[in-house]
C-alpha cells in the first residue's frame, strides 16, 4: 500500500532532479538517436529544393528566444540549404524580439557560404502593425519596407531590384511560435495572394497546422525540435552542410525527457488506480 501511495505522490523536487539529469547527460554524451525525415518535413525541403538558383526564399521569424531551441535550428538549417543552392534569402519577422536572432543567424550562416549582403540576402527586420505589413507586402514590398533592418533603402539593394511582391516569391516559410505567425500568414498572405508557403512551429502548436496541411494551404511542416532535426538530416544527407546539428543533438535529451514523463505518468496512474481500488474496498466493507 505504501509503495503505491509513494508512486502516486512523488515529490516534485525528485521529478525536477531526474529530469535535469535526463536532459543534461545526453547533451554531454549523445546517444545518437536518428530522426529520419517525415513526409511533412520532406515537403518543406523539396519546396526549397525546387526554388531555382537566383530566385528568393522568404523566411519570417515569428518567435523569440523562448522558442529558440525548437525554431532557431530550423532557421539555421533552412538558411544553409538555401545558401548552398545559391537561392537568395529575404528574412523578416512579425516578432520584434526575434530580430536579434535573425541578425545572429544570417551573420553566422552567410559567412559560412561567403554570401554578400544585398546581393545574396536581405534582412528586412520588423515593422509595427501586423496586418498592414502582411497585406502590404502582397502589393509592394518596398512600400511596406522602404528601408531594411539597418536603415538602407531597399531600392539601393541589388537583390531587391526584381522583387516587387509575393508574386516574385516562389516559396515562403513562417517559423512560428504563436500569434502573430503561421495563422496570420495563411489567412492574409496565402489565402489572399496565393503565396506558396510552409511552416516551422513549436511542437505544442504543430497540431494547429494539420487543417492547413490537408487543404494544401501549407506545403509542409516542421513540427518542433523533431522537425528541425529532420530538416538538418536532409541538409546533411544531401551534403549541403557539415556544421554541428543543434536539433539532432538535442533530440536525445528530448526523447529521454518524453520517456521519463511517460514513465512518471504510468507510475502515477498505477498508484492512483490502486489507491482508488483500496478506498472503494474499504468503503464497501464499512
Amino acid at each position: 500500500m505504501r509503495v503505491f501511495e509513494a508512486l502516486a505522490k512523488i515529490d516534485r523536487k525528485i521529478i525536477f532532479l531526474i529530469l535535469a539529469v535526463v536532459i543534461i547527460v545526453p547533451l554531454i554524451k549523445p546517444i545518437g538517436l536518428i530522426s529520419k525525415a517525415s513526409t511533412r518535413a520532406k515537403a518543406v525541403f523539396d519546396a526549397v529544393e525546387s526554388i531555382p538558383p537566383g530566385k528568393p526564399l522568404m523566411i519570417s521569424i515569428d518567435f523569440d528566444p523562448g522558442s529558440m531551441p525548437e525554431l532557431y535550428p530550423m532557421l539555421l538549417a533552412i538558411l544553409r540549404h538555401a545558401f548552398a543552392r545559391d537561392v537568395k534569402v529575404i528574412v523578416l519577422g512579425l516578432w520584434l524580439t526575434g530580430m536579434g536572432l535573425g541578425e545572429q543567424a544570417l551573420t553566422t550562416v552567410a559567412s559560412e557560404y561567403s554570401k554578400k549582403y544585398g546581393v545574396d540576402y536581405v534582412f528586412l527586420g520588423w515593422r509595427s502593425g501586423v496586418l498592414p505589413v502582411v497585406l502590404g507586402m502582397g502589393e509592394d514590398i518596398k512600400k511596406t519596407f522602404p528601408t531594411d533592418y539597418y536603415g538602407t533603402p531597399l531600392e539601393s539593394l541589388a537583390m531587391m531590384s526584381n522583387i516587387r511582391n509575393y508574386r516574385d516569391i516562389p516559396f515562403f516559410i513562417s517559423l512560428s511560435a504563436g500569434d502573430p505567425g503561421m495563422n496570420t500568414w495563411i489567412a492574409y498572405a496565402q489565402a489572399r495572394y496565393g503565396l506558396k508557403m510552409g511552416a516551422g512551429t513549436t511542437a505544442v502548436s504543430a497540431a494547429d497546422a494539420y487543417p492547413y496541411l490537408q487543404t494544401g494551404q501549407l506545403t509542409g511542416l516542421l513540427g518542433g525540435m523533431k522537425g528541425a532535426a529532420e530538416y538538418e538530416f536532409l541538409v546533411k544527407e544531401r551534403g549541403y552542410s557539415k556544421e554541428i546539428s543543434q536539433a539532432t543533438q538535442a533530440m536525445d535529451s528530448q526523447s529521454l525527457a518524453h520517456l521519463l514523463i511517460l514513465i512518471l505518468i504510468v507510475l502515477g496512474n498505477i498508484g492512483y488506480l490502486f489507491i482508488r481500488k483500496q478506498t472503494k474496498k474499504l468503503g464497501g466493507a464499512r
Binding site: 512523488i10 521529478i15 535535469a20 512518471l264 505518468i265 492512483y272 488506480l273
Partner: peptide, 16 residues
C-alpha cells in the same frame, strides 16, 4: 517550464 510541465503532467494525467 519544462520542469513544471513534467511535474504537472505527472499530477494531472490521471485516469479519473
Amino acid at each position: 517550464l519544462a520542469f513544471y510541465m513534467a511535474s504537472a503532467a505527472y499530477r494531472a494525467f490521471r485516469a479519473r
